[in-house]
């Protein structure tokens, strides 16, 4: 996916919103900036499909050589798919964070949280200001 077409949370997760079966489904991952900042990833803990998630709350955890970080869901809804092969192939997050490195798919229960997400330019500005 082209990162310029994605929405971003301040906590570095991205979301791609698509229409599906009359509703909206968000594909969610973490940004290339986040992957770079985390350095060498070693573990990832993911939830099961069917789990209800809330925007701003943790849905998983990732461990790098230095830091354990929580993954925050950018939308409200139910997890309908999980990239279960990812924890055993974390290098994909480095090579393709916006494609094969997707983490979960969430069927949105509402669209309230979308207004709080940043577009690519605003997210890049946030990253630039942090350095």
């Amino acid at each position: 996916m082209n990162p310029e077409e994605l929405l971003f949370a301040e906590t570095h997760e991205w979301a791609h919103i698509a229409d599906q079966d009359g509703g909206k489904v968000a594909t969610i991952g973490i940004s290339a900036n986040a992957v770079e900042a985390l350095t060498d990833l070693v573990y990832m803990d993911l939830p099961a499909a069917g789990t209800q998630v809330t925007a701003g709350n943790s849905f998983g955890e990732v461990e790098s050589v230095k830091a354990t970080s929580e993954l925050y869901c950018p939308v409200d809804g139910e997890i309908v798919d999980v990239n279960t092969s990812l924890p055993d192939n974390l290098e994909i997050l480095n090579s393709d964070p916006y494609g094969d490195g997707w983490i979960i798919k969430v069927k949105l229960s509402n669209e309230d949280s979308l207004a709080k997400l940043l577009d690519y330019a605003a997210y890049q500005k946030q990253c630039d200001e942090a350095h």
Partner: peptide
């Protein structure tokens, strides 16, 4: 060993870890 650990004569004498919240 990871980059940034403190070593003396090759032995690690200090290490740290982080937990990132929101």
């Amino acid at each position: 060993r990871s980059a940034g650990d403190v070593v003396m004569q090759g032995y690690k004498i200090m290490g740290s870890a982080q937990r990132r919240g929101k």
